[in-house]
Design a protein around this nucleic acid. Structure first.
Lengths: 168, 168
DNA sequence: CAATATTTTTTGAAAATACAGAAAGTTGCT
DNA sequence: AGCAACTTTCTGTATTTTCAAAAAATATTG
């Protein structure tokens, strides 16, 4: 496999993984492209490399900045805006964990807590509260896991977790 | 909130959460419906409750069985097939972890390992190997986390994890 | 073995999502 | 201010995903 093939495969793989987890393919591909770029890249380069329109490139670059995964970079004497990706993978992980927790997990926990309060007095309602409560625990577990990632220090994380998981 | 409203909200919430994580909305809604059903349910009931077609109901019920989250149940003296959901939420979690690991994480790890082997000798390729290697670690961490869930015993899981995470 | 009930697969259409290209908006220079 | 270099937003189109309805297959009963 040539280096160019490897880069292409990386971009494609990252895009596929993203889709499977409910994230826009192009956004992930741009992210991949920026992660493996040694230097800042401008919009036109992104467009050319991924064969996408300016509008699309711009939209997803903003989204990536919104997720805190990509930064703008200005070059002195150049009006264009260049983009650079966060390269610290654990920081990336923390950022993603943080966003997904905020956008998707926390709201669900709130709803489930609300639903547990239904006070209808039938066996059916009793069963309902049971399963909702149980699911609440599972989602809470996911929440805790993400939170652990968010709170963890860079290097500390790998060590602690690996030690813990190896014990299982 | 009435009990019926609560049930509806639960089904809707579960569907939304699923979409956000790359899973078919209807599949999750059927799953939700079955989880809170005290008794086995047949296809027509699913169709009626969620206002979906027979084809759609059937397809997603199969998919749910494929994920190991729903079982068929036959009633003596009745030709129809009834469906029942796994109610043990930790078993559900383990099942989901198992499937997603198999379908989505493991393949990515293999690709990343492959990509690390690119032996082009330039600074750019060196940086590529670095980021791919680092990401490999992060994905490996996700893999380990899912694996821990899969391997864990039912009740044991909550206790261990909570203790661990509280320490963070 | 027919007649009937039930499940499964297929197919084309509808809905949702993603996107290109163009228009509009900004910024900075002369 | 006026122009040029870029960036952002908008709008209609294309792609993908989801799904209803019909057709086909399978199972069950008399």
């Amino acid at each position: 496999m040539t280096f160019d093939e490897a880069k292409a495969k990386f971009v494609q793989t990252w895009g596929t993984l993203a889709t499977q987890w409910g994230i826009n393919r192009t956004m992930a591909q741009i992210h991949a492209l920026l992660m493996i770029a040694p230097d800042p890249i401008d919009t036109d380069t992104v467009m050319e490399q991924l064969q996408i329109s300016r509008g699309n490139a711009n939209m997803n670059l903003r989204e990536l900045m919104d997720w805190g995964l990509v930064y703008k970079q200005l070059k002195p004497g150049d009006r264009r805006e260049y983009y650079i990706a966060e390269k610290d993978v654990w920081k990336i992980a923390r950022q993603v964990a943080k966003e997904r927790r905020r956008r998707e997990i926390t709201p669900v926990i709130e709803v489930l807590e609300e639903l547990k309060k239904v006070n209808t007095d039938t066996p059916e309602a009793e069963a309902f509260r049971k399963i909702v409560g149980d699911l609440s625990q599972v989602v809470g577990f996911a929440d805790n896991t993400l939170n652990a990632v968010i709170k963890a220090e860079e290097n500390w994380l790998m060590g602690q977790f690996l030690t813990f998981f190896r014990s299982i």
